[in-house]
């Protein structure tokens, strides 16, 4: 769980649930026949289940292998095409309040990191960004709202967050849908 949270954070926010199959260890993997008893680890396997709960794909690249992302994307499209029912349009994450704004600055690794998280979390439309290195009015606004000109900063109705890790954690917690 803590390892998962740290990993998710190190990937600058992920927009999908990272699940712990750990108590008892590998139980779900085992129920799918994907737990490797001899090694005490789970196989690097991919299972696709359609919205009716029917297994549509099972494959493994072995623990030391690497999944092919293009293949997985093609697989998703195939399952989508082959599905006869209709699914509700996926709801865009909407947990970030409408007035929120992200302040960043140029040539800043922390700013870059929160911008990557914003992309990963599909927040490009929901969360406006201003660059205080390029926009004097934005810098003025940041000073006004945060009391200092430290960027990155996330200003929401609930207050100001000024550490990149805390900003990313806030974005993840408010936008990862289930």
């Amino acid at each position: 769980m803590f390892s998962h949270a740290n990993w998710a954070r190190s990937m600058d926010g992920i927009s999908f649930p990272l699940l712990a199959d750990f108590h008892p260890k590998g139980a779900v993997a085992a129920s799918c026949g994907l737990y490797l008893e001899d090694n005490g680890i789970t196989d690097r396997a991919t299972v696709v289940i359609d919205a009716e709960g029917v297994v549509r794909h099972v494959s493994s690249v072995t623990p030391s292998g690497k999944r092919d992302m293009a293949e997985l994307a093609a697989l998703c499209e195939e399952v989508d095409r082959g599905y006869s029912g209709s699914l509700p349009a996926s709801a865009a994450p909407s947990g970030i309040d409408a007035g929120a704004k992200l302040f960043v600055k140029s040539a800043c690794g922390f700013s870059r990191s929160v911008l990557i998280a914003r992309d990963n979390l599909h927040l490009s439309d929901a969360l406006p960004v201003v660059n205080v290195s390029e926009d004097a009015r934005a810098l003025e606004e940041l000073r006004e709202r945060a009391g200092k000109d430290q960027a990155p900063a996330l200003v929401t109705g609930e207050g100001v967050i000024q550490e990149s890790a805390d900003i990313i954690a806030y974005m993840v917690e408010h936008t990862v849908p289930l």
């Binding site: 769980m1 949270a5 990272l18 712990a20 779900v28 799918c32 297994v55 549509r56 099972v58 990862v176």
Partner: peptide, 20 residues
């Protein structure tokens, strides 16, 4: 081994934010 065409067994696990 889970087979294509079968019903997947249901499961409940915690995610990285502690949600079920």
């Amino acid at each position: 081994m889970t087979a294509v065409g079968e019903k997947a067994p249901d499961f409940t696990l915690s995610d990285h934010l502690g949600r079920k």
